[in-house]
Design a protein around this nucleic acid. Sequence first.
DNA 1: ACGGATCATACA
DNA 2: TTGTATGAT
Length: 706
Amino acid sequence: MPVAKPESCDSRVIAHIDMDCFYVQVEQRKQPQLRGLPTAVVQYNEWKGGALIAVSYEARKFGVKRSMRGEEAKEVCPQIHLVQVPVARGKADLNGYRNAGSEVMSILARRGRCERASIDEVYLDLTDAAETMLAEAPPQHLEAIDEEALKSHILGLNNEDGSDVKEIVRNWIHRCHADHRDKLLACGILIVAELRMQVLKETEFTCSAGIAHNKMLAKLASGMNKPAQQTVVPFSSVQGLLNSLPIRKMKQLGGKLGMSLQIDMGVNTVGDLLQFSEEKLQERYGLNTGTWLWNIARGINGEAVEGRLLPKSHGSGKTFPGPRALKTVSAVQHWLNQLCEELSERLCSDLEQNKRIAHTLTLHARAYKSSDSDSEKKFPSKSCPLRYGTAKIQEDAFNLFQAGLREYIGLYGVKSQGSHYSRWGITSLSVSASKIVPIPSGTCSIVKYFHWQSSSHFSSIQSAENLRMDATHLSPPGNESYSEVGLPEPKIHFPGEDSWIEDTTPGLGLQEQKINVWKDEDLSCSPSKKKVDGFTEDTSPLLLSGTQGCLEQNQNKQQREFSKDESRFKSEYREQKGTRLKNKGTSSILKFFKSCNPSGTSLSQEHDRTVQGTDAQLTNGAGFQSSCHNLAELNEVEVAKENGTSSHSYIRDQDEWRREAWSYNINEIDPSVIDELPMEIQDEIQAWLRPRKRPNNIVQRGINHD
DNA sequence: ACGGATCATACA
DNA sequence: TTGTATGAT
């Protein structure tokens, strides 16, 4: 089986930028008097002074390490300054660090394709910039080379103590009969040095960098000389570097795989891998991993730098270690509400700033069960379509939890547990939002289309909000079938609980209790206070069940594609769910049309700005929450308003249309209806029907224009 | 009975 | 496709 191998003659210029003890730097910028002092950031924790998650280099000199407790750190370094991570809603709040990371990203993205690797790490593809520099202003002819560039570390160069290192570096950069690849790296040195100085100037943060011909080597190099330095890996020194490199130092080999290589194969350094054939490695570790291993032994790594400045998912979670484990459903619900609040807030920000919508909500939990034999069973994670609005997210997350818990403790014995709750405890909870896609780009021209189709008097701001809310009902790309766990189900009764909630009203299910008790706290991002009206209430089951049609249509195909186990599991699962809604359609497309506001061209302009400027995506200004509140409520308000205004008489009566809009399956839309629309809109609708095909990276396109 | 909170990706 | 496992920071 010929597996495509990456080109071995790789002349790209790749940089990996790594912020130095980033959280510490963020805190030191807030409190400049801490600069230069031994400092560490600790996560709120009463227990032993909290856990260190970032340690300044001054503190490291004293032997302070990450994963030490605050108290231990004080022992080895009594003068250390411990700064606590901000706390919001009873949990660590990392938003300050996220925003600081975005500041850096928007600077680094100026010179080439840029990939967010983590909150404080970035890959850059500087190939084009380097080639351009080589053609227009080659370093050989540069009389003055920046001091920062001269401080670079060049692997394989003769730096003995006696000689002037900077002269050697200057010489290396100036060499005119160098290999083309070395010349490109020389350009990389200059560009990265400049970028790092730019970052320092604009953010006050220092960073380290690796410059090489691929991501793997760049990443390796960025960690070799910290802090605030850069390291280059010329092609000629690759093999020498790898030959003596401990296998676990390589990214992806720090865990079980690396350990297996060491134990099972006797591979201690990356160079040791060279003795195995590709086939041998594939036989042991699979085609993909085997080939990957064979390549990295040779310093080959063809992975592209993805042009992605934004995270692909958002999560909010908390652990409840040992004695703090959650033992009642009400306690779980309380914390779920906190986590969902934060998640919802971040989703709103993402929507506002980046015009992106998340489509899947997932709940993760860890649990122990001391009582019975199967205490080691994993708590299953569950997901469902994501509906915007804090209260909806909270409700859905709680349902996911209940579904998971039911599986976890066993499907039958729930009631029979009797008066005392079963001995489970939740040690970790998290909710996350994924499948985040940009709002359909077609929106703009469709808005324009309705601009002359009808008249309306909504303000452009209202229209923009409305548009976004409606867009949340669009099906995610390639995601016509969802699991049904989000459907309303008979509540589980958990007897004998001493509830978190003091004034529990007898006779109300947990669901209702939650709403009664917690609703008033929920003022931040979107309202949970108002009881959903008939319309909104309908949308959730419809959105879910509407997918059922597609699911059944594709049943045969899926049967073939899924393994026996999976398909058996699925049918069992479906049975267990018992009665369910059927036959509705999801097509929010028509509602989308209807509520699009003609005067919303401002949105299109705003969107264009976002596409072009990376700054627009990444700047988390102070006012970023200003228009973020009450999205869900706004939706309801708009709907109510529309009932009275009956603007465009496109088809029939508004109410009737709305009802029918939701009963359409997206596959059942009469093609002739689409045919009557302008060509450009037809194209866009087609793109919606197959969103997977649509290039989803506005970031990339924006950068290419630079 | 924890390094904690987030992310990404490969696999089945 | 969803859910799990692994890995990194």
